[in-house]
Design a protein around this nucleic acid. Structure first.
Length: 316
DNA sequence: GCACAGGTAGATT
DNA sequence: AATCTACCTGTG
């Protein structure tokens, strides 16, 4: 009981300061080598987890702690590779298979990267060389949609804080004392007011409308995932609050469609500055990206985004 | 006080 | 069809 109270106190204090949650180490298993782990450079490991693809990873001490679906996992990189640990009692085989799906181990990102036009594109070459092993995550579809519905004109730390607040308020508790993101039914039941209390502002109305629709149409997102990319995109855009950019984020980070190329303010600036496309708007830039980067344009986008965040390319 | 931040939808030109 | 503008909230 005393332990529980202490944890809650710590959590609320940290929430106010918008710092990552910290959980009781005793609740976690020993570190285990992730034998199937993909190769990551240090930079790519951090950027893949905490670079704006997903909003539920936090640096804790010498590791990253993340959540998706009903999973809580800690990952740490050392000279032997990637190590993981999970709440005591979690089935190691289930964790392994959850990791395999989340990290899209069935996708050959090294091969997709090599097929990008880096040989003739020095900007892309710089970005790829700075983040060797960068991957596109394959996140649960609904969670990806929720995260990016929260994202408009918000910075990553704020999006993470909102996701955490909504999870604590509406989501199921997890074995380590943290919370999963809520289902659409849970969000719809909570309503717009509670979403606004999580500091969602004008996004709350869209998210509530989307949650009401999706909870009344179970299977709709899975049906969408079965469609070709352009048809899936059209359906996603029909949801309240989802435009081209958020739809492309969902296609890329939640459905593994590497051709999807989200253009946000960062990517717009990168393309304009690095490729001399002054005055180009979003639609022509999409055509440029498709033609120049090819079928894995979305992977190129992630390299460029990472490199721009690091101040390596497209500087003023 | 004010501009700006991983956008979208609706109005106006 | 292209270009505003409102919409919440936090940060600098």
């Amino acid at each position: 009981m005393a332990l529980h109270d202490q944890g809650c106190q710590r959590r609320s204090a940290r929430q106010k300061a918008e710092l990552p949650l910290e959980h009781v180490d005793l609740a976690f298993s020993d570190w285990q080598l992730w034998a199937d782990a993909p190769h990551f450079s240090r930079t790519a490991f951090a950027e893949t987890l905490d670079g704006g693809q997903a909003f539920r990873w936090n640096r804790i001490k010498n590791c990253f702690e993340g959540r998706w679906a009903k999973n809580t996992v800690r990952l740490r990189q050392d000279n032997s590779g990637i190590l993981w640990c999970a709440p005591t009692g979690d089935n190691p085989e289930a964790v392994g298979s959850a990791l395999a799906q989340y990290f899209a181990l069935d996708t050959d990102f090294a091969g997709q990267t090599d097929a990008l036009p880096w040989r003739s594109d020095p900007v892309l070459k710089t970005a790829i060389e700075a983040f060797p092993g960068l991957r596109i995550l394959r996140q649960p579809l609904g969670e990806t949609l929720f995260g990016f519905l929260c994202s408009s004109t918000k910075q990553i730390p704020q999006i993470k804080a909102i996701c955490e607040a909504v999870a604590i308020d509406m989501g199921d508790p997890l074995p380590d004392g943290s919370h999963a993101l809520p289902s659409w039914a849970q969000i719809a039941a909570a309503g717009e007011t509670r979403l606004r209390e999580a500091k969602l502002g004008y996004r709350a109305r869209y998210i509530n409308q989307t949650a009401v629709f999706l909870s009344q149409n179970p299977g709709w997102l899975d049906e969408t995932e079965a469609l070709p990319t352009s048809e899936a995109r059209q359906r996603l855009i029909s949801l309240p609050g989802v435009g081209r950019k958020i739809a492309d984020c969902v296609l890329l980070f939640g459905m593994g469609r590497l051709e999807a190329f989200p253009i946000d303010t960062w990517v717009q600036k990168i393309l304009v500055r690095a490729y001399g496309l002054e005055g180009w708007k979003s639609d022509p830039l999409l055509d440029f990206a498709r033609v120049h980067f090819g079928p894995s344009a979305g992977l190129a986008q992630q390299y460029l985004f990472a490199a721009a965040r690091a101040g390596l390319i497209a500087k003023k």
